[in-house]
């Protein structure tokens, strides 16, 4: 790992100030992606501003139908939150399947979405639920936030503070893990929201997370796995790699959507 300067931020304002003052700084939350990337010498931030200790950025709160999750909340704390399990089990379940137990104890929702790894799980839920990403400066709709592979709408010195969304009537996440990395080879978050059916796919697209509109339309007509039978998923725009080509991923999009819908509570 290259040399870096570590700072522990005490508040969101402190984090913003520290990152603003740094030469080429990066925010560090759980570090479960950033630290391995730095170990591999693929990232060399001059400064690391650790936001994981900022109290305001922790926890899950539910007010009416709105769920708010602090950006530094670990996957384990999202997965284990009883209120969230009751209100939107799909998101809790998704969090329970990220990485492995040790990774879930450290990795955070804010870190995951800020990185926008094309195989990360959270972006699918955020996009499907039309989540709002709240930063120190503004609120960004998920559809505008996820720009492309490893790219988001965040400015360099912008800190994600929390994520909020309206709990859907039904939601579930179905993930097909890559046999090696266990990241999502295809992950589908299906939700029945006030605005209609939502199907968001991670892992498969060559430009990151995306919505499968034709499936949403079919589900709007009939919310059931059978409604998807006639929908063809093409392989264009899907990833091909040693673990599976685009044709296989297209099949998995279909199968995982069916399973997500079937698994919806």
């Amino acid at each position: 790992m290259y040399e870096t300067k570590y700072h522990k931020a005490s508040s969101v304002a402190d984090a913003v100030s520290l990152i603003g003052k740094s030469d080429d700084g990066k925010l560090l939350s759980g570090g479960q992606t950033l630290v391995p990337t730095m170990k591999a010498r693929l990232a060399a931030p001059s400064d690391l501003v650790d936001v994981s200790g900022i109290a305001d950025m922790h926890g899950v709160s539910i007010s009416g139908s709105t769920v708010t999750i602090g950006a530094a909340t670990t996957h384990a704390n999202v997965a284990g939150n009883a209120d969230l399990q009751a209100k939107c089990g799909g998101v809790a379940c998704l969090a329970a399947g990220i990485g492995d137990p040790a990774v879930r104890h450290k990795g955070t929702i804010g870190g995951s979405i800020a990185n926008n790894d094309p195989a990360a799980d959270y972006p699918a839920a955020m996009l499907a639920l039309d989540a709002t990403i709240k930063t120190n400066a503004r609120e960004i709709a998920a559809a505008d936030f996820f720009v492309g592979m490893f790219e988001t709408a965040l400015e360099e010195d912008e800190v994600i503070v929390s994520i909020s969304f309206d709990a859907p009537a039904k939601a579930a996440y179905a993930k097909f893990p890559n046999p090696a990395s266990r990241y999502a080879m295809v992950g589908v978050f299906a939700a029945q929201t006030v605005d209609g059916a939502r199907v968001a796919v991670t892992g498969a697209g060559d430009d990151g997370v995306y919505r499968q509109f034709d499936m949403e339309a079919a589900l709007d007509t009939d919310w059931s796995p059978n409604a998807l039978a006639g929908v063809q998923v093409g392989s264009e725009g899907l990833l091909s790699d040693m673990h599976g080509d685009a044709t296989y991923r297209a099949n998995l999009v279909k199968v995982m959507t069916r399973r997500a819908v079937a698994g919806c509570a």
Binding site: Y6, K8, V35, A76, V103, H105, K106
Partner: peptide
């Protein structure tokens, strides 16, 4: 175990 929870010590900084 860090504060009672299993974590990967290769994936966190000592400073953290």
């Amino acid at each position: 175990h860090v504060d009672g929870k299993a974590m990967k010590s290769c994936t966190m900084l000592a400073a953290a």
